[in-house]
Design a protein around this nucleic acid. Structure first.
Lengths: 343, 343
DNA sequence: CTGAAAGCGCTAACAT
DNA sequence: ATGTTAGCGCTTTCAG
């Protein structure tokens, strides 16, 4: 049952039926009611393609993920982000069109997979440092919001980001305040812009106290539990081991914990750990076995909602120009002590 | 630049240009080449809506998630599933349209959010026992594949599922073979069909040896680390504690581990644990600290690919009728021993 | 091998 | 308040 049929059934024109259904004011209430009932009765649903073609609005936003961001998509944080973005978008009648593409196809795909008309705007995920996608997106001309930022990108663009630099600066400061001087950074892949910024925050905090990072205490790789474990284990076996760790995700943090336990060290006494994940920094130190998985509030959810909101604003009025949101990470201070006395 | 403009530029008709670009044989190679070059040069991209309207194919499949499945969407397994499904679909030129809807809107939304024409088929996720969505999907008439199954549903429908019952039967058998008799099941929410089946596998395995499950050793809730921990802790504090646990996810398993460590019990000697997640069962017993996160092969990835493949087959030929795939879970046997001798 | 014309289902000016 | 008409951009008969 399409509009034409429905109109015929009712003895009305397509126009009137369309107007009645879409809430236009110039339709008599009697007619509107009649039309609505008939529509419901016949289970009429407008064809989204036809409507989209006629209106120019797709009522969908795109989410493009590159295969190299694979690692990102399986990140629980990603799922949370998408879920909350989808929630906000769904409330406004928008769908999410997700495409997964290989690195090589990128340029082509940004134009063709998000073929003209399929979406009204885009959310770009997991930017790398010096990411070229922003230039492409600009050329496409669709409104877009970047979840994250791209260091060293000149053009203005809209973004929504955690303040990763500040989070790691604060976390490092905290450890420094506790008296730690040999702090290890177990970071994600530093091609990812967020990891890059985290590292900067770490180094800045050290520099502010005239300290230099020890290169052998900085690692960068995909954030798995075993990476956290192996790296921490190796660092702890060094002649001059770290007294504190900064772990760049929950999984990494768990690995670090494991290495510390295996080394027979006492968490929170001999070694401190700050874990940062999901926009949340915390110190599971004093209570080494405290659950790592029960954060009651999740900044990344907020991030998803915000990102979607921003995009909708941009779609409604592209002239609003580049807009930014910087989300402050939370820092949950747990019980903790300084480093073990020098032996 | 649309088809009309492109045709005008070339001094050809829209028809010829369309045919040239879509690989129809009746176009001369010379013309085709000329057209292709012009298309590339002008960055021509067909409008997906217009094409879809004309061909009837949307080149997209839908993925509907209800808000109550919230818990599911943040499950890392979900992200993995979607990623691999998207990969398969993208290779065939299909996008994924994701909609997140509230429980209440369900019926309406299945018809209207997936408005006619937006997608060619659907993947239904996270079915509950007695889920009513299948009936709705049938009425919509679009091809669909259920990831999971719905117990007690009469109509035939296409599905792709892990053999959860068998997995838990096997796992329970394994523990029984080791001599355990007091086995605890720390399950997910048993409204979810997969959890329901897991429980059945557990009970069946016990029944096969004339054993009854002890109700106080069976729990069902959202699969978090703290749930695993608190539940295991409570069970271990009972006068007649379990000697083995069956944990229904990695996170739950970690919680159980923590409770066991805290109770001062020796993993793999005094207490055994089988963890099942992501279609993989394993015994991290003998080496209590072995990484839980480094499974090298992930059945859920395969599930995503398979599910997408099935749907594409169904879209290509709906008459292929309901098709099913039952994916066997893997069982990784680690070092383990029987229960501690009765004191 | 190429083109003219119809139509996919809807909305939006432009009448009336 | 309702109808007429003209597209939106593409594919696809049907002619030539």
């Amino acid at each position: 049952m399409n509009l034409k049929d429905l109109a015929a059934t009712l003895g009305l024109s397509q126009t009137t039926v369309s107007r009645a259904l879409n809430g236009y004011p110039e339709v008599s209430e009697a007619t509107r009611k009649r039309v609505r009932e008939a529509a419901r009765e016949h289970g009429y649903r407008p064809d989204s393609r036809a409507r989209s073609l006629a209106t120019g609005r797709a009522m969908a936003v795109g989410l493009v993920l590159t295969t190299s961001a694979r690692q990102e998509i399986v990140n629980p944080v990603f799922a949370d982000f998408v879920a909350s973005a989808a929630e906000t978008l769904a409330a406004r009648g928008y769908d999410i069109v997700m495409s997964l593409v290989t690195e090589a196809e990128q340029t082509a795909v940004y134009r063709s997979l998000l073929r003209k008309g399929r979406v009204d705007g885009l959310i770009m995920q997991a930017p790398l440092t010096g990411d070229t996608r922003i230039g492409i997106l600009h050329k496409i001309g669709l409104p877009f919001v970047v979840h994250g930022r791209v260091s060293d990108h000149d053009e203005a663009y809209s973004w929504m980001d955690m303040d990763n630099r500040h989070a790691f600066h604060t976390a490092t400061d905290h450890l420094l305040d506790l008296g730690h001087r040999d702090i290890a950074l177990i970071n994600g892949i530093e091609d990812m812009d967020f990891a890059h910024r985290r590292r900067e925050g770490f180094i800045d905090a050290l520099a502010a106290r005239n300290l230099r990072p020890r290169p052998e205490l900085m690692a960068s790789a995909a954030m798995t539990e075993s990476y956290g474990h192996d790296t921490a284990q190796r660092m702890l076996a060094q002649p001059h081991p770290p007294t504190a760790f900064l772990a760049s995700s929950m999984l990494v943090g768990m690995g670090v914990h494991r290495a510390i336990r295996e080394a027979g060290l006492q968490m929170g006494r001999e070694v401190s750990v700050v874990v940062h994940d999901d926009g949340l920094s915390y110190l599971p130190n004093g209570t080494p076995e405290q659950p790592l998985f029960t954060a009651t509030h999740s900044p990344v959810r907020q991030a998803g909602h915000l990102c979607a909101d921003m995009l909708l604003r941009l779609i409604a009025d592209p002239s609003e120009g580049p807009i930014h949101t910087k989300l402050q990470a939370s820092f949950l201070v747990g019980p903790s002590t300084g480093p073990a006395p020098i032996q």
